[in-house]
């Protein structure tokens, strides 16, 4: 233990430029996600594994090329996994561990923290989308590409982030963990990711209002058939507005 040079601790307080804070916080968010094995399992391993298995093993009947059906659903699953489930769990535990509270006592503005979280999610999504597209193409995927895909990804991310922050921002870490995984699993089954919505008969129309179904169906219409589904886009927009508003109101930092 060494002593301190006189004057070395003299006050010189000033907040860092916002750009530096944003970069540092975004890097921290991304590091935490990629270092956490559960998060990697949830956001990368499971979606890619499901894509390979569902496409190669024909135990679920679909119309058209198998990869053309499953890649859009898996893209929706990937976005749900990182923006909703991963973010909810991380946020729930950060609150429980007092991290968010402590960040609140630093010059980091809350909007910069939330922006950094969003950028962290988008960076992980980019990695997911690239890997899923590469694996999909290797499995014989023939997409129709239009720029509208970006709108679906952005609205889907906004909707799921809102829901994730609402959950993680109000419940304890462990409750969030349980709830986020349960919701993830239910939406995986009912959200048009694994099973075509038509399998659910009369309920299909209602299920399409779920954010996962709206995202998977919208992406599928677009990438498989080149059709923009306005209804799904609208459903996602409504989810995004409602969830983000609710999250902004209910979010507790402690």
């Amino acid at each position: 233990m060494s002593t301190w040079t006189p004057g070395s601790l003299a006050p010189r307080p000033e907040a860092a430029p916002l750009g530096r804070m944003l970069r540092a916080q975004t890097r921290a968010e991304l590091t935490l996600t990629l270092r956490n094995s559960e998060q990697v399992l949830l956001t990368l391993v499971i979606p890619l594994g499901l894509l390979v298995v569902l496409t190669l093993v024909p135990f679920i009947a679909v119309t058209g090329r198998r990869a053309d059906f499953f890649v859009p659903g898996i893209l929706a699953l990937a976005i749900m996994s990182s923006a909703f489930t991963g973010q909810a769990i991380a946020t729930g535990f950060e609150r429980q561990y007092g991290v968010l509270k402590r960040l609140g006592a630093t010059p980091l503005p809350r909007w910069v923290l939330l922006l950094a979280k969003t950028l962290g999610v988008l960076a992980v999504e980019l990695l997911q989308l690239v890997l899923i597209c590469v694996v999909g193409l290797a499995l014989g995927w023939h997409p129709h590409g239009t720029p509208t895909v970006v709108a679906f990804v952005v609205l889907g991310t906004a909707a799921f982030s809102g829901l994730g922050l609402l959950l993680g921002g109000t419940l304890s870490g462990l409750t969030t963990l349980a709830a986020a995984n349960l919701v993830w699993f239910v939406l995986l089954l009912l959200g048009g990711v694994v099973f075509p919505l038509t399998e659910f008969g009369g309920a299909a129309d209602l299920l399409r209002l779920l954010p996962t179904a709206a995202l998977s169906n919208g992406l599928r219409q677009l990438l498989q058939h080149g059709v923009t589904s306005g209804r799904d886009l609208l459903a996602l927009a409504v989810w995004a507005v409602v969830a983000l508003t609710a999250a902004a109101r209910a979010f507790r930092w402690e």
């Binding site: 860092a16 804070m21 007092g98 402590r102």
Partner: peptide
């Protein structure tokens, strides 16, 4: 905020960040 430093009674660190990374992060706010 920039003029005050706070050490709470417990907690407040990202469990997954290394000690040096955590301190670098807080340094980057100033």
């Amino acid at each position: 905020r920039p003029r005050v430093g706070v050490m709470p009674q417990s907690g407040g660190g990202y469990p997954g960040l290394k000690a040096a990374e955590l301190l670098d992060l807080f340094a980057a706010f100033h």
